[in-house]
Design a protein around this nucleic acid. Structure first.
Lengths: 148, 148
DNA sequence: CCAGTTAGTCAGAAGATCTGACCATCGTCA
DNA sequence: TGACGATGGTCAGATCTTCTGACTAACTGG
C-alpha cells in the first residue's frame, strides 16, 4: 500500500515486522513441539480466548472477522481438541468457547516462546528503551484498538 | 497463540494494533476514492514494489508468501491496471513488476493517508515519544526483518 | 407479550495460499 | 565450452480463509 522509502519507514510498517516475527516464531515452535495441525488463522483466533471462555461473537469482533469465519475456525479448533464449547450460564443463546486440555498445553508452549522472544528483544534494545517502547505502544493503542 | 493478560500485553500484540489500524484506514480511504477493487492481499504485495520495479521472487520473499501466490496477486493487479511487467534487462529469466499509471495514483492517495495517520499518532504521543518509538522499532527491525 | 436486538448457524461463493511439477535461463567449474 | 546445479517464473490442483445473505432461537424493553 505504501512503498519502501529508504530510512524513513512508515511507523505502521515498522510495527508490522515484530508482530510478524513473533507470529512466525510461535507457529514454528508450537509446530515443532507437536502441535503441527493449527493454522495461523486458528491460532490468531485462539489467542483471543479469555481465561474463563469467550463468546464467539466477541472473538469475531476482536479478531475483526465475521461470526461465520470465527465459527468455522472454532469448529476446526474444537475438532483438533484445542477448545470446547460450553453453554453460557447467563444467556441461553450464547456459548462460551473455552480452552480445552490440549489447548492448555499449547498455551503453555506459546507463553514460554513469547517470553523468550521478548527477552531477546529486550536484550537488543535495553531495558529502558523496551519499557518506553511498551509505554508508547500502549498509549497508541488508545487510538488504534477499538476493542480495548 | 497468546492470550489476553490484562495490562502487561505482549509486545508483539501491541505492535499489531497500529499496523492493523493503518491498513484498515488505508484500504477504506483508497476504496472511497475510487480504488474499490484492490484487496488487502493485493495491497500488501503492491506496497513492496520498489521505485524502479521489483522481481516477483523478491516480492514473494518480502511478503512471506510463495512465488505462486505472488504471481497470482500480480496477475490481478496487472489486470486492474495497477502494475505492469517488463523484462528485467539484467536477466532474461526475470521480469520486473512496476507500478503502472493507475498504480501511481493509488500510491499518491496512500502516501497522503499514511501521513495523516502518522500525524494523528504523533499528536497523541508527542513529538519526542514518537521519535523514540520510531527509533526503537527501527532497531528492533534488525532482529525481526530478515529482508532489510 | 410483541418488536426489535443479539447469539449463533447454514449454505454458497470468492479469495488467498499452499504443494508439486515443470520450463527456461543463469553461473560456474571441470 | 558444455554439463549441472541454482534461480526466476509459470501451470495445475487442492485447501484454507473469509465474505454475503438468509435463517432460527433467545433475550429485552416497553
Amino acid at each position: 500500500m505504501a512503498g519502501p522509502d529508504g530510512d524513513h519507514q512508515n511507523l505502521a510498517l515498522l510495527c508490522f515486522y515484530p508482530h510478524r516475527a513473533m507470529e512466525a516464531r510461535l507457529l514454528a515452535t508450537v509446530a515443532a513441539e507437536g502441535f503441527d495441525d493449527l493454522t495461523l488463522a486458528q491460532a490468531r483466533l485462539a489467542a483471543r480466548i479469555g481465561p474463563s471462555g469467550t463468546r464467539l461473537t466477541d472473538l469475531a469482533e476482536q479478531a475483526l472477522v465475521t461470526k461465520q469465519t470465527a465459527g468455522h475456525l472454532v469448529d476446526q479448533l474444537q475438532r483438533a481438541g484445542y477448545v470446547r464449547r460450553v453453554p453460557d450460564p447467563t444467556d441461553a443463546r450464547a456459548r462460551l468457547v473455552q480452552i480445552a486440555e490440549r489447548g492448555e498445553q499449547l498455551v503453555a508452549v506459546a507463553r514460554r516462546v513469547e517470553a523468550e522472544v521478548e527477552a531477546e528483544w529486550t536484550a537488543h534494545l535495553g531495558e529502558e528503551a523496551t519499557a518506553q517502547l511498551r509505554a508508547a505502544l500502549t498509549r497508541l493503542r488508545e487510538l488504534t484498538d477499538p476493542y480495548r
